[in-house]
Computed example of a mutant assay.
Amino acid sequence: MTLKKEAIFPADRHALYEKHGYSAAIKSGDLVFVSGQVGSRNDGTPEPEFKKQVTLAFDNLEAVLKAAGCTMHDIIDVTTFHTDPEAQFEDIMDVKAKVFDQVPYPNWTAIGVNWLAGFDFEIKVIARAQTML
């Protein structure tokens, strides 16, 4: 049996995905696989101030989840990418604590990288869509 896949796109964010040829998220069954979200402004350029870039990445993530019928509380797995983890850790943890403020927290893997196409932070997640019976 093959599960149906549905591409998910948030409002007003199509140009970035079309330019690079990927979906913002794919919904398959009750799972939502969200592509890496960055702190891009409306024109697709990086937010220059790091903490604001992280906050904007979470805002962009929330918009994709909303388009998929999910909330931040539906996230079960998080992977983040950081260009300078040691220097960025405090700002990331501050934003993270505001977003994930209830237990159980999602599991989290952080990876240091040396390139994110002009960005310094990226977040991708897997969420479980809630079904109404």
Rank of each mutant, 00 (worst) to 15 (best):
L31S: 13
I123A: 06
K19V: 08
K96P: 00
C70E: 11
V32K: 06
K66S: 15
E62M: 09
F100R: 08
E62Q: 14
F50K: 02
V32F: 03
A63L: 07
V64S: 10
I8T: 01
M72N: 15
D77E: 11
A97W: 02
K66L: 15
P104C: 04
A110M: 05
A68V: 07
K5V: 04
V32G: 13
R41Q: 06
K51R: 12
V103Q: 15
P46N: 05
M93W: 02
S35N: 12
T131S: 11
M93F: 07
V34T: 02
W108P: 00
A63C: 12
K19W: 04
P10D: 03
D84V: 00
A97F: 07
M72P: 08
M72S: 15
R128G: 07
N114P: 09
E122P: 01
G29W: 04
F119T: 05
G39W: 03
K4S: 12
L16M: 11
F119E: 03
E47F: 01
T79F: 06
S28L: 06
D30L: 06
Y22F: 15
V34E: 07
H73P: 00
I26V: 05
T80H: 01
P106L: 10
H73F: 13
T55H: 12
H14F: 05
P48C: 02
G21V: 01
D77S: 10
P48S: 04
A11R: 14
E86I: 12
G118C: 08
I8Q: 05
Q37T: 07
M1H: 09
D30R: 14
A15L: 12
V103P: 14
D12P: 00
P85D: 00
T2Q: 02
R13P: 02
R128D: 06
I75C: 04
A127D: 04
L56K: 10
V103H: 14
T83A: 04
Q88H: 11
A117K: 07
G36H: 00
A63S: 12
C70R: 13
P85H: 02
P10W: 12
L31H: 08
